[in-house]
Design a binder for these strands. Structure first.
Lengths: 263, 263
DNA sequence: ACCTTGTTGTTTTTCAAGCAACAACATTTA
DNA sequence: TAAATGTTGTTGCTTGAAAAACAACAAGGT
């Protein structure tokens, strides 16, 4: 009889998000530590009330996480973890696949309805979402793409997205340095590091803004990528005339500066 | 103002298993059908009580399924389905990864404790689990592997698992037919279809058992794969002397018969 | 007679779901 | 300008459903 050794809370949460209840998680974890336990032993090991152990074990068998012996009393055994987690994931993934299909159908029904959305300013959370939006902007470019970003951000997340931009679109990039081959397709301007990466905000205080960027497409769509420290990445996107104009001015002034100083 | 068109129940269930609540699912689905809706519009579209819409939208933003505009009033927009589902899956997969790691650590702590587990008969549910166990049996083979299975089962699920068996182990296979190249490593016996696939159980009644198999390793470990119609696949595994002996006799008799009749 | 297994039914707890009311603010109307 | 009206966003409370926890008992084995 082992102590119901207490279980890391994070583990319980993880298993819950895989579709298990607290009891199911506790019983499965308990079973991993022994071989062929009876229901009562499971109760002792996991700390789950004995009466609750039976329905829980039934569900776990149903979910292909434990196997049952044909003896009396029944004995239970856990499926090895990676096999078990795999089994859970398979269900979830098939659900995800189904959901994606149906949702996509609904999504396509939406009338494009360009309407007055161009007056809004959107915040986008999550790096993946930001990159997706950036990709969309670049893909829709017809005349010009302007990029003002730190090199690390460029390197990591932006350059790849610029690939599909056709040659007919003028692409200008301002950054703080450049490593590797400089594509002849782009107009590239290098600006001293101090200016881009740090901004003097108060007398003597430096406000470092790491991994940030400004993007402008066709003078009509702008995205501000705010690399907020360790918080969740976020960005602003807008087609509003006001914000676009602001970004337009910002980029122009920085570019001008680059031309007079840097070059 | 659109009707809160009713939503397929299966879709709600799928989204729940991806970690959304009913409200979260309804709001997200509703948002997919419009562009830049206000909280009140979301309430009208989704049928979710207006007061509940705010916390729900907060959570959806947190989960990277919707983006918010910086206007007043705030406007909300859904991220495209495959992007959104992707975002949900990423979280779940990272949970799965974490859980697998921790569980594996616990699993390895288990003393091998071979104990009297060889007297038990285990039932295994789910094709994946059965195959995993079979693979384990084959991997542990030291002298002999005997297989008695219908060709379709062999072909689909078994032959691949026999790959890692070393040449020093004698492998015998009895099946109802053989298509393709016959590996010289195996002793192969063909037995007429009627015998293997159908079994006369009552006078005149035939009991077809499709996709079933019997496996015996080193005369010590046996697995019975029961291809139960459309129900969940299941199997029996045992190291118990009784069951092993039974399987031993069964295979021997069938093999004998094959030798006298078929050949 | 005693203990263990397995089952059933009931209570408690927890969290989502649903509802009512209100402060803040903007828009309209007198 | 002031009152009337309406909308946004919040707070707190009630309802309801599912899991968690407990109590009690029939069946069977020693």
């Amino acid at each position: 009889m082992k102590a119901p050794r207490d279980v890391p809370n994070a583990l319980l949460e993880s298993l819950k998000s895989l579709g298990l209840t607290k009891y199911e998680a506790l019983v499965y974890i308990g079973l991993l530590r022994v071989t062929g336990a009876t229901a009562t032993e499971v109760h002792e090991i996991s700390g789950v009330p004995r009466a609750s152990v039976y329905p829980v074990l039934d569900r776990l068998v149903q979910k292909e996480l434990v196997s049952v012996s044909h003896t009396t009393p029944k004995r239970f055994d856990a499926v090895p973890p990676d096999q078990g987690v795999e089994n859970l994931m398979r269900r979830i993934e098939s659900d995800a696949e189904g959901a994606r299909t149906v949702l996509d159908a609904l999504y396509r029904e939406k009338r494009p309805e360009a309407r007055d959305s161009q007056e809004q300013i959107w915040t986008i959370y999550g790096e993946e979402n930001i990159r997706a939006r950036l990709a969309g902007m670049f893909r829709s470019a017809e005349r010009s793409v302007e990029v003002l970003a730190t090199w690390d951000l460029l390197q990591e997340s932006v350059l790849a997205l610029l690939e599909p931009v056709p040659d007919s679109v003028q692409v200008d990039i301002v950054t703080d340095c450049w490593k590797g081959e400089r594509s002849s397709r782009f107009g590239i301007h290098i600006l001293p590091l101090a200016t881009l990466r740090e901004t003097r905000c108060a007398p003597g205080k430096l406000l470092p803004y790491e991994s940030s960027g400004v993007f402008l497409v066709d003078d009509a769509r702008a995205l501000l990528w705010l690399g907020a420290g360790d918080e969740q990445r976020s960005a602003l996107y807008s087609e509003s005339a006001g914000l676009v104009l602001f970004v337009r001015r910002h980029i122009t002034s920085v570019t001008e500066w680059a031309r007079t100083t840097g070059q």
